[in-house]
């Protein structure tokens, strides 16, 4: 049973998430920079490239906001703000070592509910500006949700099944010996895919795709854009980070304290996702839907069945 976190953890959580997001985005910027302009000439240049996300944030802060005609400003703003809010709320059940801001008995359901908020967020952000392209982007995320959500649910259900509890702390405790990733590899891989899809990032960036001039973000400028795109990085960090308690043993590990293991594992998962993203184009949902429903759903169901049989016989 994990310890209850002190109250200040609720304040630290958003800050920690933002720091993690900036570091991840910086790593991504270094990789992009070396593809675009060749490998960095030295440490200084690499450092400069790594700070690109911060400079970008500053630039967006200086930009004036803009409005479009007959925009639904209330819903549009709501959508933009919901992205980071959903990420932070989902992060509340993320155990740091063995200690989360909150560890309710339905932590996994909470996480999933917060992540479903992102559906509303992206669609609202696309709806708000009254622009065809951003609306197309918003609807693309709904299609994406239909594709990834079912396999994703089965994947996290499998982890909960293995621990016989929906409490995140129990799931971590159940992995004291063997990580779930080892005996539920299919669920783990599907979870990583849906982590990217939830954060509508990388290969699942279709809602913000270039062919729709940015899709849901097409009309966002200034602070709106910063909150939306920054929120997306937060979501990526949180969803990637949640794979650690679910499948990678949480804070369990030799020698180092629990928080260090959480940090290391989260960093490893994020590095894998950011580096792996370079090998893939954006997946068009029309195609991914086929894979998701024809292959991933049966695969995760079989995985759940296997886990259920193991649990019943233990």
């Amino acid at each position: 049973m994990p310890d209850a976190a002190p109250l200040w953890a609720a304040v630290v959580l958003p800050v920690a998430l933002v720091v993690a997001a900036v570091v991840t985005a910086g790593f991504d910027a270094v990789l992009s920079g070396s593809a675009e302009r060749g490998p960095a000439g030295g440490v200084r240049e690499a450092g400069l490239r790594a700070t690109a996300p911060l400079r970008e944030a500053l630039r967006l802060l200086v930009q004036q906001p803009r409005r479009t005609t007959a925009a639904d400003r209330l819903l549009g703003r709501l959508g933009v703000v919901l992205v980071p809010v959903a990420a932070v709320l989902a992060g509340a059940v993320l155990p740091w070592g063995f200690c989360a801001v909150s560890d309710p008995s339905v932590g996994i359901v909470w996480f999933n509910a917060m992540e479903a908020l992102a559906w509303a967020a992206v669609w609202l952000a696309g709806w708000g500006p009254n622009s065809a392209l951003s609306l197309i982007g918003g609807y693309r995320f709904l299609a994406q949700g239909l594709a990834y959500e079912l396999p994703h649910m089965f994947a996290i259900t499998t982890a909960a099944l293995g621990a016989e509890s929906l409490r995140v702390g129990d799931v971590v405790a159940a992995q004291d010996g063997l990580w779930f990733a080892v005996w539920m590899p299919a669920a783990f891989v599907v979870y990583l895919l849906s982590a990217l899809a939830m954060a509508f990032w990388g290969p699942f960036g279709h809602p913000l795709s270039r062919d729709a001039a940015g899709g849901a973000e097409a009309e966002l400028a200034g602070v709106d854009r910063l909150v939306f795109l920054g929120g997306r990085w937060l979501l990526l960090v949180v969803t990637a980070g949640f794979s650690v308690p679910l499948f990678l043993g949480g804070g369990h590990g030799p020698l180092l304290p629990g928080w260090a293991w959480t940090l290391l594992k989260t960093a490893a998962v994020l590095a894998l996702l950011v580096a792996g993203r370079r090998a893939l184009p954006v997946l068009r949902m029309e195609r991914y839907m086929e894979l998701a429903w024809m292959v991933l759903v049966p695969l995760t169901l079989l995985q759940a069945l296997f886990v259920a049989v193991v649990v019943l016989n233990r």
């Binding site: 992009s32 593809a35 675009e36 960036g205 795709s209 270039r210 993203r277 184009p281 954006v282």
Partner: peptide
């Protein structure tokens, strides 16, 4: 390649 969202190769 940029349009299909494979920036790494496009650049």
């Amino acid at each position: 390649l940029a349009l299909v969202g494979w920036d790494d190769v496009a650049v």
